[in-house]
Design a protein around this nucleic acid. Structure first.
Lengths: 249, 249
DNA sequence: TGAAAATGATTGTTTTTGATTGATATTGAC
DNA sequence: GTCAATATCAATCAAAAACAATCATTTTCA
């Protein structure tokens, strides 16, 4: 058991319990207390933990684990069906916007071999597409670690410099009354993407249709088409308003 | 059993268990410990594993799909020493630029708990810092998948909108004649970062000092200080030109 | 066969670890 | 608050393990 391995274990334990104790460490790792102390001191001098009497604590107790790709996707089959249809709308040569919705993210797997340019503010999308045929542009600005995406005024400004042929976006909710978001930042980005593309698709599974969350940020006419797995009943009224509905079933 | 075959086995075992032990390796492959050591050293210098006392570990225990990490693993001790010094130069409240050099990347681990703002064009840096105390800004523009970073004219424009207190940059080579890069894009980004920060540190290990690659893109006075593990001989002439040298040994 | 490369043995050096000792910090009783 | 008891710490030293360097031996390949 060398230092590197111990360092790993100590940081693991620290992450799990928020604190470690020298005696427990020494016992658990089969090392002397003095070595445990040395380890903690070194880690502390690198700023990786906070040394206390008899042990150590996490420096930043609020740090979240590194869950990069959102695997907690709800009903992935429906979303994949939506994305298959969406991918069918994309031609080689297209310049497309993709935002940071969880459904939009699943579109990546279907467009890896297309000769297109993707402009996005979503870190997972960037990661997914970075080594394939598509050419990537990244929206710059403040990074929101909660949503793993870039937002803010600089981002909006940046988006406005581009013009896309198609945009594929998500929302938190949509009803005949308009589009709904959870945060103002999200709303601003969505609006800007839509305003700078020739044709805007909304990707949303059935659970989003009819949902009105706290911020109504745009009229329905911001977007041109909805790609969804929802059926007839839920979609009543949308087509009357000139919306194109692409049903995936 | 030749080296190639052993190399394969070692990497296999490393992948399976995350670490290898010299004694076990020697016994398992029917070679002397000294040969095992030699093998591990060679693999380490190729960046394929991380050498430890008595064995070796996987380069990065967290699965990272891209080989960027590998470059970062070439003589990691020297680079880590450089980064420790660099981290020591950073104060809470600083706004810092970080570019896409492999040494610069290793700085991440030492600044995770600092209360600073990091502005970067490097995807690995973003990935590494996305869930910690630092606040992140991403430079937008064209994405270069080779270097896993953003570059191009839009990126330069974007950088110019920010002003940092300190910049931590890498280069391909540096001599008393100036700074050298491999590509014009890289050179442009480096220059822009340096021009928009109050104080610019160059992080470079000994192999970069004195090296002159094909594109000389700036005079020495673009940067303020060099942090390096190189010793006296190689550094002759730099201090005469007003350069601050922070030696890590 | 002979030169070059790879391997192994030997040597002394460096790194890592643990033990000891005296100093310092923490705790609880007063 | 003071004091003593206890725990933790830093510093120094010694032992063990791992290491690098050198040289001899074996293997490889032309």
């Amino acid at each position: 058991m060398n230092f590197q391995k111990r360092k790993q274990k100590i940081l693991e334990q620290l992450n799990a319990h928020g604190e470690v104790d020298i005696k427990q460490l020494a016992a658990g790792l089969a090392i002397s207390e003095i070595t445990a102390r040395r380890d903690l001191n070194q880690l502390a001098s690198d700023g990786l933990l906070y040394r206390t009497h008899g042990g150590a604590m996490k420096v930043n107790p609020f740090e979240k684990p590194h869950d990069f790709i959102n695997k907690a996707a709800k009903n992935p089959e429906a979303k994949d069906n939506i994305c298959r249809v969406a991918a069918g709308q994309i031609c080689d040569g297209d310049i497309i916007f993709m935002d940071c919705g969880s459904t939009v993210f699943r579109l990546c797997q279907f467009i890896k071999n297309k000769k297109i340019k993707v402009i996005t503010n979503s870190l997972p999308v960037i990661y997914e597409l970075q080594n394939c045929a598509v050419s990537l542009n990244i929206i710059g600005g403040e990074f929101d670690s909660e949503r793993q995406a870039v937002h803010g005024s600089m981002a909006g400004e940046h988006i406005s410099k581009y013009r896309a042929s198609k945009a594929f976006l998500g929302v938190d909710g949509i009803s005949v009354n308009g589009l709904f978001a959870n945060t103002e930042n999200e709303a601003a980005i969505t609006t800007t993407f839509a305003n700078n593309s020739d044709y805007t698709y909304l990707l949303c599974d059935a659970s989003k249709i009819g949902k009105e969350s706290y911020l109504r940020f745009a009229d329905l006419d911001l977007i041109d088409a909805i790609i969804t797995d929802a059926d007839g009943g839920k979609l009543e009224g949308f087509e009357d308003k000139g919306m194109v509905i692409l049903n995936v079933n």
